[in-house]
Simulated scan of single mutants.
Amino acid sequence: MPGSRDLDPSSSPRALLGAELRHAREKAGLSQEELGQRLFVSGSFIGQLEAGTRRMQREYARLLDEVLGTEDFFQRNCAAAAKSKYPEHFAEAAEAEVQATEIREYAPLLIPGLLQTPAYARAVCRAYQPTAPEEKIEEFVAARIERARLLSDPTEPLLWAVLDEAALRRVAGGPEVMAEALRHIADLGRRGRTIVQVLPFDAGPHAAMEGSIKLMDFEDAPPLVYFEGVGTGRLEDDPAVIKHQRFTYQLLTASALSPKNSLAVIEAMAEDYAHEEHH
């Protein structure tokens, strides 16, 4: 069952909704598993709603009001809890990151959002939205950099990133921007704030060639994995899926360079970009 730290009503509308759900469920004398059965979901899914690692969808809000006798409370408050500064397909994953104690991510095409600098994020967001007004781009950049504040805590969450060499070779914003971006990653690694590994081209075929992986673990809630495509994404909590993706990630780390050698490669590439900009 989620711990009390996940149920701070002052933190967000979603946390308040989770706290109210737990209160209503216990008042009805139902366990998470029993309530889940009535909604045709798992008990762990109910726990994630209460902990705030899952967003409450409108269809579940309606069923909860019916089962728990809360009139239209959850339906009325569902919309407020769903408001987010992030794109719809990514919002739930971004909100789960805040609750995570460990995040393991494989990035095949670009530097992960939690490791991006403002200049790099700006170049990427502009590529996503080539016709968007400048103020809209700055909103995207601000939201992305705000996510990275998770790393201002000296210990949590653990962030372990495997970066494909392609993500480091694809120039976003020019050599100067890339030099800054790679130095930022190397600095986080040197300070022990993150574990970073580079998956080089000469590693050949590998277990995650079909896409990215983001695994998230929580203190008192089941783990989640996030899959992302172009303009789409989804969270999965199926134990079999989690087990398979965890094994895939282990294979990736075995194929990648060691953290020590990875930092050396990243720093060398940063110098190459800086030299390119200078000339």
Rank of each mutant, 00 (worst) to 15 (best):
D8I: 15
S10C: 11
S11C: 04
S12Y: 10
P13G: 01
A19E: 06
H23Y: 08
R25H: 04
R25S: 01
E26H: 11
A28K: 05
Q37H: 09
R38A: 02
L39D: 00
L39C: 03
F40S: 13
F45K: 14
F45G: 01
G47C: 07
G47L: 04
L49R: 06
T53L: 05
R55N: 06
Y60L: 10
R62H: 10
R62T: 15
V67M: 03
L68K: 06
F73P: 02
F74D: 04
F74H: 04
A79F: 09
A80V: 12
A82T: 12
K83F: 07
S84D: 06
E88P: 03
A91G: 07
E92M: 12
A93Y: 14
A94H: 09
E95A: 11
E97T: 13
A100G: 05
T101A: 01
P108L: 05
L110W: 05
G113N: 08
Q116Y: 00
A123C: 02
C125E: 03
Y128W: 15
Q129H: 15
P130M: 06
T131H: 01
E134H: 03
E135V: 14
E135G: 00
E138H: 08
S152Q: 15
D153R: 04
D153T: 10
T155S: 07
T155M: 12
E156A: 12
A166F: 07
R170G: 02
G174A: 04
E176F: 09
M178Y: 04
A179W: 01
E180Q: 11
R183L: 11
A186Y: 02
G189N: 03
R191T: 01
I195R: 11
L199D: 06
P200E: 04
H206N: 10
A207S: 15
S212I: 09
K214G: 00
M216E: 05
D220E: 11
P222C: 04
P222L: 03
P222S: 15
P223I: 13
Y226R: 06
L235W: 02
K243F: 14
Y249E: 07
Y249V: 02
Q250I: 09
L252W: 03
T253G: 00
A254S: 10
S258L: 09
P259K: 05
A264Q: 01
A268E: 06
M269A: 06
E271K: 10
D272I: 14
A274P: 00
H275D: 04
